[in-house]
Write a protein that binds this DNA or RNA. Sequence first.
DNA 1: CCTTAAGCGAGACGGTACGTCCAGTCTTTTA
DNA 2: TAAAAGACTGGACGTACCGTCTCGCTTAAGG
Lengths: 195, 195, 195, 195
Amino acid sequence: MPPAPNPERRSAQSRRATLDATIELIARDGYANVTIEAIAAAAGVSKATIYRWWPSKGHLALDAINERVGQALDFPDTGDIAADLCAQMTEVVGLLNSDIGTVYRGLIGEAQSTPVIGAAIRESVVDAQTEACQARLAKAVAAGQLRTDVPTRAMVEMLIAPLHYRMLLGTDVLRPQDLPDLIGYCLDGLRPTSG
Amino acid sequence: MPPAPNPERRSAQSRRATLDATIELIARDGYANVTIEAIAAAAGVSKATIYRWWPSKGHLALDAINERVGQALDFPDTGDIAADLCAQMTEVVGLLNSDIGTVYRGLIGEAQSTPVIGAAIRESVVDAQTEACQARLAKAVAAGQLRTDVPTRAMVEMLIAPLHYRMLLGTDVLRPQDLPDLIGYCLDGLRPTSG
Amino acid sequence: MPPAPNPERRSAQSRRATLDATIELIARDGYANVTIEAIAAAAGVSKATIYRWWPSKGHLALDAINERVGQALDFPDTGDIAADLCAQMTEVVGLLNSDIGTVYRGLIGEAQSTPVIGAAIRESVVDAQTEACQARLAKAVAAGQLRTDVPTRAMVEMLIAPLHYRMLLGTDVLRPQDLPDLIGYCLDGLRPTSG
Amino acid sequence: MPPAPNPERRSAQSRRATLDATIELIARDGYANVTIEAIAAAAGVSKATIYRWWPSKGHLALDAINERVGQALDFPDTGDIAADLCAQMTEVVGLLNSDIGTVYRGLIGEAQSTPVIGAAIRESVVDAQTEACQARLAKAVAAGQLRTDVPTRAMVEMLIAPLHYRMLLGTDVLRPQDLPDLIGYCLDGLRPTSG
DNA sequence: CCTTAAGCGAGACGGTACGTCCAGTCTTTTA
DNA sequence: TAAAAGACTGGACGTACCGTCTCGCTTAAGG
């Protein structure tokens, strides 16, 4: 095992170039068709430098995504749960239809054979989003806008799963304008019965 | 290009051994960690024979799945749409939790970087299932049990997407006993408003 | 450990091209400056093929030499020991001043840090030459032309060592016309004392 | 090109540690198996410091040898040429059988592919020894103990070459007790013919 | 005393080659 | 004539050093 490198001496420029090249190449050629060597060449960086800071292509790609998305994608709270969900999910759909989305798709592909990557995706992406969404839904439940007998986690999955399904298995990408209907159908089943 | 081989002279035994080894190895080691060479060795078959009959690991794995699942998984029609959906989806969940599921997961992973495989999965697996489900839902719509203003395709996705989401991104596999609730929440939003 | 390859199926053409490229490149660039990758590229052969048949650059280079020199370099026997030695050693000097000599030098260099190569050189080159020379000298001893109290092995080294010394440590290569004097000085000390 | 470093400010301690580590590591692992990085680590010195003062591993190793051997190894002059040669060469053999010898062997190996090192070895080691030996032999010639028609340079090579030959190509190291015979055979051919 | 300029350790960097592995093609032999 | 066996080219893998570089730290000299 090599001694852990010292992050303080890390070259910011190499880091930047590597992360950028990662996203650019994966967006162009597809996750599995991109090699670490190609990333190194495109970034003008040596392979050793990449391996010094990232243990695998998966970790590198995930890092690249997280860095781009930041801690963004917070849920608004206007009181109108349908509108708020729609606003936030529209942003998500925008991301998924961008280069980031292509990288994300590839990463989920990788995760099917590399459990470590699956765990890392959950930890740094999925869980954060899920919890934020659950929080917003919980407020709606408290406000009497949603049923109390459905766990918010189940609600989240009902809303989010179709996005992933379309991205991973569909031909046509999910368009932002499809969101209101989709959300509507879900909420219809999640509202308290008036009787 | 070599002349297309004559399927009539094909060795049934080699085919069997190859398909079986494919599923066994992928179930054990994960899709991406299995090489064609390993499959050939495990099946006691030569690499050339595999390449003669399948253009890629993806096509081979897909073939192996289809052969196991057959044209099964038809939807029953007892008149009770919730019960019928639950019965069929229980079978699907059973498959996804078996070796077949592992191969299917890996295949969807592959599809993220190999569009041909994505198309092949849709053609031979997804579309058939979707259409069968749509047909059963259409009957329920006609019987006045479901709303007429929601496309059956959208209904199908609401039901099926969470299964895939859990399989591809979850830690805990979806258990059969979770199905009734899941289906219930969906149908609650899909039933005609009584007023 | 990979299964031993089957020599009968070996590609004669790849073997030829590899051995030729080895000698050519080493003669041009010097032993240590030649990489296996460069040999592979120059020979139009893949690295894997080289590693399949030779365990290291040293073994490859030694093979290349042996193949060129063959079992040649036998000692003549005209009855005149001085003339016979001179004739044979002239041939040796010719070889050492050719491409083969450059490879041989490099190989001896390698042997200084890689005992396996040293042993292989001795086994396939040095010992054969030494024994042939000893045999010729033994005849001269039996014929009363050389002292009986000096081991033939010591005689061989007295004759052969200066060639190596000049090759490995000298600036000016040893010229064929220097041989008669060199041999003469040695034999002067090795003839029976007439008194 | 960086400005030449100022030797007056050089750290004597770093120099010592580097030279010692060089000999120790090469004696243990063999010349070619020792990296500059390993020397730096073993000496507790940074790579840059080594590169600041020595242009290559070869120059470093040669420096290490010279520093150990000093200007020693002068030829005695008791009047008995055989005894004097034997005395001095015994010392040489002692050195060659020590750690220094291992380094020297490796260095000669390096010289086969790096002409600069060959020249440096000749300049700082071989030539000095040769000249000293020639000087002693010249005295013997003048004293009528050796032939006048053989260049002293040729005499030196006859004596010295077998030592190198054994060191570079032999299995068994040359033992000190072998020296008298070896020298005897040579001198037998180099003495004036009494008739 | 205080600054400055060098040598120094540490170690990150762009490269190059390593020896291994597998993809996908091809040839030879067996049934 | 399909299939088994397996050698072949090609190319990426992840590792190890190369020789260069930039960083702070120490240390001695000169103002």
